[in-house]
């Protein structure tokens, strides 16, 4: 029977149905948990990136604001509509005043797409904080762009220097990870991940150009 023409086809079909069925059921059962975790960690990240600015405006402690999640997210964070852009945006509102913005940004890395979140000052010119949310870079090399020493370089950096130019962003250059910056436009790259480090900067510049123009349009 095993050597007949039809048996292998039927056998393979049964195996595929069986295993794909098991995987489909397992995924459907786990999906609500997976989606809930994704939403929760995304919202936490958004709040974390603007917690410092909220803390300044409310005279609270940033750690306390994070500890009060999710109520602090519901109290201070409101969505912002960006037209023709497949990106989420948020604003931190204390009283009637906007104290910071947070934008989802997207770009291409060495091996695939990458996604980040940046919070900015209300004039949209300076990065308050920056986080990589999703990336497909080489573990131990390019994936080190998620490490705090790399991301903290972008904190409180002026990024929009020429609001009326085609490229509104300030020029930055990478130096070796082991060197110390000598000028204000130097950033340390991840050792062994030149393309990934450059991709992060390219993503930030491209997204800043898009977001700055879009937000200026919304404000006016």
């Amino acid at each position: 029977m095993k050597d007949s023409f039809l048996f292998p086809i039927i056998f393979m079909l049964i195996m595929v149905i069986l295993f794909v069925g098991i995987l489909a059921i397992m995924y459907r059962v786990s999906e609500p948990k997976i989606e809930a975790y994704k939403l929760d960690s995304f919202q936490r990240q958004v709040l974390a990136l603007m917690a410092g600015k909220i803390a300044e405006a409310t005279a609270m402690d940033a750690a306390q604001i994070m500890a009060d999640y999710p109520s602090s997210f519901e109290t201070y964070i409101l969505p912002v509509e960006l037209h023709d852009m497949d990106r989420q945006a948020f604003q931190a509102v204390v009283g009637d005043s906007v104290v910071a913005y947070c934008f989802e940004i997207k770009g291409k890395g060495l091996w695939g797409s990458m996604k980040g979140l940046i919070s900015t000052t209300t004039d949209l010119k300076t990065i308050v904080d920056f986080a990589i949310v999703d990336q497909m870079e080489t573990p131990g090399l390019g994936a080190r762009i998620e490490e705090d020493w790399f991301l903290s370089q972008f904190r409180n950096r002026l990024f929009v220097q020429a609001p009326d130019a085609d490229d509104v962003t300030k020029d930055y250059e990478f130096i070796s990870e082991t060197q110390e910056p000598e000028t204000s436009n130097q950033l340390k790259r991840v050792t062994g991940a030149t393309i990934t480090s450059d991709s992060v900067l390219r993503m930030l510049r491209a997204e800043f150009n898009l977001i700055y123009r879009q937000m200026q349009g919304l404000k006016s």
Partner: peptide, 23 residues
């Protein structure tokens, strides 16, 4: 083909389990 299918299925099971329970 059957072996590949089984191996891939177990790898995906590990992946789904970790995503849902140990994110």
């Amino acid at each position: 083909m059957v072996q590949t299918l089984i191996i891939a299925a177990y790898v995906i099971i590990v992946d789904i389990f970790l995503k849902a329970n140990l994110p």
